[in-house]
Every structure is written in C-alpha cells, then in structure tokens.
Amino acid sequence: MISAAPYIQPEWQALRPLVGIGGSTLFVSALLYFLNMLLTCVASHAQHPRPQRLRKRSRALRRVGPCLIAGRPWLILTAVLLLLAYGHPLFHLVSNTPLNVAGMRVW
C-alpha cells in the first residue's frame, strides 16, 4: 500500500521539530487573525477614513491599443493554444483508452 511506504527516513527525523514549531506558530497567528477581524467588526469604534474612488479610465489607458484591453482576442488565443496543446493527446487517449482497469473501491 502506497500510504504505508517509509517516506520519512531516519535522517530526516531531526527536521520534524521545525515542522512542529512552524505549524504551531501558524496556528496561533491564524487564531489572532480571525480574532482581529472579529474585533474589527464588533468592537472597533474609531471611524475608518473613506477610501478614494478608483478612476474609471485614465489618460494612459486611452493610449494603449484596444487589443490589450479587450478580452476576446485573448480568449480566442487561449482556445487555439488549448486545441493545439491538448487536442491530439486527449483525442488519442479517449479514442484508445480500454477503460478496463478494475479500480479500487475505497468505500
């Protein structure tokens, strides 16, 4: 069984405390993060300054060619490249796969 393979060799055991320290630090910091968000929502009374609005269309945007702004050319390029990169391998696999591997039930 793959999951029973001895992946952790004896020489790597010394590194395990580092994993434990790191995991514990991250766990505590995650708790503090969520507590911080909760306190911001329910306990903070100081007013937050109103954020500036993002400009809809800058002057620089008008200088850029439409092909860089529009999404359609990039989607077409994506479709063409996908067809080139995956078309033949997938067609070959689908048309030749025997679908006769028994599989392994895990339930």
């Binding site: 503090l32 507590l35 306990a43 954020p51």
Partner: peptide, 28 residues
C-alpha cells in the same frame, strides 16, 4: 474589512505577528 465596516482595524501587533509568521513559514 475595515473599509466595509467603516471602522479602523483592531490590534496592530497581531497583524504584524500574522505577517511575520507567514514570512517565517515561507522563508525559514
């Protein structure tokens, strides 16, 4: 979250701890 709620965020040192722990996790 502070912008949505219109309230200043809570404890600054905790946020630093969060960023620092992320740096430790990735860098160290």
């Amino acid at each position: 979250v502070p912008v949505l709620r219109g309230r200043v965020s809570g404890v600054r040192v905790w946020r630093w701890f969060r960023a620092g722990s992320g740096l430790w996790h990735g860098g160290c």
